[in-house]
C-alpha cells in the first residue's frame, strides 16, 4: 500500500493538467503583465511596453493602496469570524433534528449563497437601506434605526458577506460533523459536561483541521470578493470600504490601466499567501500533535 508512484501520478493527472493549462499559464501571464503598461483601450493598448517595476513603485506611492490593504484585512477577518461561528453553530444545531427542519433551515441559509451576486447584493441593499427592511423591523421592536451603509459601511458589508457566505461553512461543518462519533459526545454529557463546554472540549479539537481548512477557503474567497462591495457601497463612502479588489477593478477596468491593476492583484496574492501560511502553521501543529498522541 505504500509505494506505487506511477498510479499516484495517474490519479493526479486530470486535475493537474486542467489546472496547469487553464489556470497556471494565465496566472503566470498575469505576473508578466504586472511589469507592463498593459491597457485595454487608450494609446497604451496599441503596443505592450515593458515598464519594469514602475507599477509596483506607483503602488507604494499610492496612499490608497495601504488603506485598501487595511480594509481588505478587516473585511476578511470579520467575514471569517462571522461565517465560521455562524456556519458551525447552524450545522451543530441542525444535527439530529427532524428532516424537514434540516431541509427548511438549511435551504433558507443556502439561498443567499446560491443567488447570483448582483441579486444578493440588491437584496442586501434593500435590507440595509435607511428605510429598508432591517430598520423597519428594528422600529417595530422600538429601536431607532441607523444608516447602516453610511455610518458603519465596513460592518455592513461584512454582515452582508456573512449572510451570503455562511452556507458554505455550514455545509462544510455539516459534512464534518456527520463524521463525528456521537457516542463520545453523549458519554461526555452523561458525565455532567455541559453542551457548550463539550463542543469546545470534544468536538472542536476533532474538527480542528476542518476549522483551519474552512477558514482558509473562506479567506481566499473573501479576499477576492468584489461584486457585493461594489454594488453595496462602490468602495465608499469616502473610501471606507475600498478594498484591494475594488481598487484593482477601478484601476484596471475603469481607468484602463490594466497593468497597474494586475500589480495590485499581485499584492492581494501576497496577502493571501500570508494568511495561508498562518493556517498552514496551525494545520502543521495540529498534525504534529496528532502524531504525538
Amino acid at each position: 500500500m505504500k509505494k506505487q508512484p506511477v498510479r499516484k501520478f495517474v490519479f493526479l493527472l486530470p486535475a493537474t493538467l486542467i489546472i496547469a493549462v487553464f489556470f497556471l499559464i494565465p496566472a503566470l501571464l498575469c505576473v508578466a503583465y504586472s511589469f507592463t503598461d498593459l491597457a485595454l483601450t487608450g494609446s497604451n493598448a496599441k503596443q505592450l511596453t515593458f515598464v519594469g517595476l514602475s507599477n509596483y513603485a506607483k503602488m507604494f506611492a499610492d496612499t490608497k493602496v495601504l488603506r485598501a490593504a487595511r480594509n481588505t484585512v478587516v473585511f476578511t477577518l470579520g467575514s471569517i469570524a462571522g461565517q465560521s461561528i455562524l456556519g458551525f453553530s447552524i450545522a451543530y444545531l441542525l444535527r439530529e433534528k427532524r428532516v424537514w427542519v434540516r431541509r427548511v433551515v438549511g435551504s433558507i441559509v443556502m439561498i443567499g449563497w446560491v443567488m447570483p451576486e448582483v441579486v444578493a447584493a440588491t437584496c442586501m441593499n434593500s435590507f440595509f437601506a435607511d428605510r429598508g427592511t432591517l430598520n423597519a423591523g428594528l422600529n417595530l421592536i422600538g429601536i431607532k434605526g441607523i444608516s447602516w451603509l453610511f455610518t458603519y459601511p465596513m460592518l455592513t458589508v461584512i454582515l452582508a458577506n456573512i449572510w451570503r457566505g455562511t452556507a458554505f461553512s455550514m455545509m462544510n461543518y455539516q459534512a464534518a460533523l456527520d463524521d463525528v462519533d456521537t457516542s463520545i459526545l453523549e458519554s461526555a454529557m452523561l458525565d455532567g459536561c455541559g453542551e457548550i463546554s463539550s463542543i469546545f472540549r470534544i468536538i472542536l479539537p476533532v474538527l480542528k483541521k476542518t476549522v483551519a481548512t474552512n477558514s482558509m477557503l473562506i479567506t481566499l474567497s473573501t479576499l477576492g470578493c468584489f461584486g457585493m462591495i461594489w454594488i453595496l457601497t462602490g468602495g465608499g463612502p469616502g473610501g471606507k470600504t475600498n478594498t484591494m479588489t475594488v481598487l484593482m477593478y477601478v484601476n484596471a477596468f475603469q481607468n484602463s490601466q490594466l497593468g497597474y491593476g494586475v500589480a495590485i492583484s499581485m499584492a492581494l496574492l501576497v496577502i493571501g499567501v500570508v494568511f495561508g501560511l498562518l493556517y498552514t502553521r496551525m494545520l502543521g501543529e495540529g498534525e504534529k500533535n496528532e502524531a504525538q498522541d
Binding site: N125, A129, D130, S147, L149, F150, T151, I231, L232, T233, G234, G236, P237
Partner: peptide, 10 residues
C-alpha cells in the same frame, strides 16, 4: 438630502 441616502448606491 441626508448624506446617507445621497451617497448610497441607490
Amino acid at each position: 438630502g441626508t448624506l446617507s441616502e445621497l451617497v448610497s448606491s441607490s
